[in-house]
């Protein structure tokens, strides 16, 4: 398949078992280049587990993950990161004891060795994320909104082809949500970044995403455009209807 039409990423029947619990069961989906794909589902549905499988933190029990045409199911995390697959963490997503600047430095240094070019890259990251004012603050001292943005900055520092964001807007007020969405859209427009996002703020997800996957009890319940998902009776029953 030529590179342009090939999906950037594909999960093929991935399954993850923790002892007796099947956290993710036979899930298949593709992510096209340049897409912003949403992954929604109630707490415990298996969203973070899918992130951990995609990014190499967990090994799949069955199935495989394919990134840019290559089977990456058994690659270690750091190698996946270096070939362009990055993720944020739902919890503790920062190097808390380090300054904002050092967080971004550490995240950039594996990708650019030349100090002058690294500086340039870092300023670019800092500009897009709007972190210029807080560079010398310790990450743990930042207000919550800045902390979540910094975790996106860390993952984006290597300019990944696929960026996976695990609940990036949690705890944001309305203005912050708009700012966060704006940043994510800019990453796609200016850097052609493909995004997979888990987020509980339904209004944000519906306005941001091209397509949405719905996960329930570790299984894929359905997928479609935001309108299709919002009008699918099975999905409303399982998730949307109850939570909104």
């Amino acid at each position: 398949m030529p590179a342009e039409t090939q999906p950037l990423f594909a999960a093929e029947g991935i399954t993850k078992r923790f002892g007796g619990l099947v956290a993710v069961s036979d899930v298949s989906f593709e992510i096209s280049r340049g897409e912003i794909l949403g992954l929604i589902g109630p707490n415990g549905a298996g969203k973070s587990t899918i992130f951990n499988l995609i990014s190499g933190f967990y090994r799949v029990t069955r199935g495989r993950t394919v990134f840019q045409g290559q089977d990456v199911s058994s690659l270690p995390i750091w190698k996946l990161a270096r070939i362009g697959l990055a993720r944020t963490f739902q919890h503790d997503s920062l190097l808390k004891g380090m300054t904002v600047r050092d967080n971004i430095l550490v995240a950039t240094t594996q990708f650019i060795r030349n100090p002058a070019e690294r500086e340039k890259r870092m300023s670019e990251t800092i500009d897009i994320m709007g972190l210029g004012e807080v560079l010398d603050e310790k990450a743990s001292n930042l207000p919550h909104g800045h902390q979540r943005i910094l975790s996106i900055a860390i993952a984006f520092s290597g300019r990944p082809a696929l960026l996976c964001l695990d609940e990036p807007l949690t705890g944001f007020n309305q203005t912050e949500v708009l700012g966060g969405l704006d940043i994510i859209r800019r990453l796609r427009e200016e850097f052609a970044t493909t995004v997979l996002i888990v987020e509980h703020n339904m209004r944000a997800v519906m306005s941001l995403c091209d397509r949405i996957l719905v996960l329930h009890h570790g299984k894929l319940l359905g997928s479609g455009s935001p309108e299709e998902v919002q009008n699918d009776p099975a999905i409303i029953e399982a998730y949307l209807g109850k939570s909104e």
Binding site: F57, A81, L95, V106, Q110, I154
Partner: peptide
């Protein structure tokens, strides 16, 4: 140096160090 910051990043939170391409 940036190498030294990578050391500290590993101590702070190893998962993040791995996720940004550091061969821990």
């Amino acid at each position: 140096s940036s190498l030294g910051k990578s050391f500290i990043a590993i101590r702070e939170r190893e998962e993040i160090a791995r996720s940004v391409g550091i061969n821990v």
